[in-house]
Amino acid sequence: MNILLFGGFLGSGKTSIILQVARYLVETRKEGFSTRQTDSGKPSLVIIENEVGETGIDDKILRAEGLSVRDLFAGCICCTLNAELTICLNEIQEELSPQWVIIETTGMAFPDKIVATITKFGKGIDSIKTIVVADAERWDELSTVMPGLIEGQIAKADVILLNKIDCLEPKQVSDVKEGVRRINSSALFYAISAHHEVDPQVWREAVTDK
């Protein structure tokens, strides 16, 4: 299993981006079969959806697209539900052994805590990539109000997607990029607008390339 762990603050656009990434993975044929279903009829892409509320919304949005989704609600998989995440992930491995697992974290999660947990306890994991979505429109506000969380989410990302750049002027985008890069200069970085269809080349480099 190749795991794509999506982090980023509430409202940054994780679900919109995951919809595009999932479509990309489904349409991209790997090793002779589509990623939505293997020859055995099992899904080759499974999404684990973690939401802090009692009722999920993002899981319904993803299911409406025909995607295979597992829910972990009413808690955060980087702390209160970390054992449930491990159980869920290992069940997926045993029952389906998909090529791809996308994990959408709550907007309050620290992705590196989750990586530590699944690296230690997860079974059958070939790779883990942490993709953090940063909200360009609210960067100044969020990095001021809760710098610990925002910096903690971005600092150890493998890939940073600066989303909603359509809401800013080019100079503002450049300033936000500088702020993001000060926290993490080594991650792959893409400035995007998930409101529109993102160039598949971005997904190829950011998601599927090793």
Binding site: L10, E51, V52, G53, E54, T55, I57, C76, C78, C79, T80, M108, F110, K113, V145, M146, P147, G148, L149, E151, G152, A155
Partner: peptide, 21 residues
């Protein structure tokens, strides 16, 4: 505290959540 031991701030605001179907 959000139960984190982290190099960044351990404390983050606790949001109010309303969620119903």
């Amino acid at each position: 505290s959000h139960q984190h031991s982290h190099e960044f701030s351990n404390e983050q605001p606790d949001p109010a959540i309303f969620s119903e179907t």
